[in-house]
Design a protein around this nucleic acid. Structure first.
Lengths: 211, 211
DNA sequence: ACCTGAACACCGTTCAAGT
DNA sequence: ACCTGAACACCGTTCAAGT
């Protein structure tokens, strides 16, 4: 009994990362991954419980490599800096969406970000409970931004048909929706602008003002 | 040529809605849906382009049935009321998540909500452009809340293994993460609390305060 | 203990044919 | 025009067997 392992968990996760980076999550299948490491699909199941665990490991791996920014003294600035670091760290990997809907950004490596947002909120005067609530609001806002953003990018990438947005705005009832009609022709560029950070500051300011 | 259609788009969407309500999105497959209406998978493709379009139609159908709340005069109250109506309208259908990551809540029926949020923001003094940005921030926050919330519910439902959150908090480094350590044993109930509306108000207030 | 081969029970979608 | 049968090209995962 006992035979030198042919594959390690780390190798498997690294191979999965290569596939996802080169071809997208949709192409990360257990069969494709097995081919990548030169084994059979079944070999993978000796190192990970199932595909979901694999994706979670991939998220952990990514989270560990994410930059940890210098922390400003001002609590509001600090919250904005840390939350923006989360977003920037996840923005370039659209596959993260799949994992976000399955997990809670609760990897070990993510704790650093959570701690510093909660700490800044407490320092600004919130109770520990309210500080957790504030963190949650910021996380929901960030997750929503990432998901909507990457979904939009994906649609643009592999779709030639007109977007639903275009169709809907094309026959917009200007009498029923006057404010939308006024910005209808600018909707695409307006919603394409990256206003994450600005609105994040508004959110954080609003949350700190509560307490 | 010409034969009386056996199925209509509306029937197909209604059948899809029944499956999703009774068994969840994961069980909504083209084959299962075909069985439900008493036809073959191929018959569906004469009425919808593909599965994604079917999910979009399902979202439209749902959006049309969503309640439209009375609108308070105060712009901030109005924004909170309308956004909360979006969330409440989508909160009971976890499948919405799949569609949200594929679409942009850009169905005809959703315009009513968008219009009134943008209108309230303009009334509060924002430029039309900034009002659109404000709406987007609110939508991202709402989408993030829905996605994280329904993902958490799903995990609880079909999982007996301890959540990652539990594992991570179990061996938390209290020296490195003092603020998290202080709330660690209350994390579950704290993050389970529904603070959507309260934080939404903070967000909206922050956005309107910008000017 | 670790890996393989073959199979199970599925998917979405397309093609060619029927009425 | 609308629907069917059969097939294509996949999935994740399990079981039994090999070393």
């Amino acid at each position: 009994m006992g035979r030198p392992p042919k594959f390690s968990r780390a190798e498997i996760v690294a191979a999965a990362g290569r596939i996802v980076a080169a071809e997208g999550v949709a192409r990360l299948t257990m069969r494709r991954l097995a081919r990548e490491i030169g084994g059979t699909p079944m070999a993978l199941y000796h190192h990970v419980r199932d595909k979901e665990e694999l994706l979670l490991l991939l998220l952990d791996d990514h989270a560990e490599r994410m930059p940890r920014p210098d922390l400003p003294d001002d609590p509001l600035d600090r919250i904005v800096t840390v939350a923006a670091a989360i977003r920037d760290g996840l923005a370039d990997c659209p596959w993260i969406v799949e994992v976000l809907t399955a997990d809670d950004l609760m990897s070990e490596a993510a704790l650093w970000y959570v701690e510093h947002i909660v700490a800044a909120a407490v320092e600004a005067g919130l109770s520990p409970e309210r500080a957790v609530h504030a963190y949650r609001a910021i996380w929901h806002y960030t997750a929503g931004d990432l998901i909507v953003r990457t979904a939009a990018a994906r649609r643009l990438a592999d779709d030639e048909r007109p977007t639903r947005r275009e169709e809907v705005f094309a026959d917009l009832d200007a009498a029923a929706y006057p404010h939308l009609a006024r910005v209808a022709d600018r909707w695409e560029p307006l919603t394409g602008q990256d206003t994450y950070r600005r609105s994040l500051r508004a959110l954080a300011a609003g949350l700190l003002a509560e307490g």
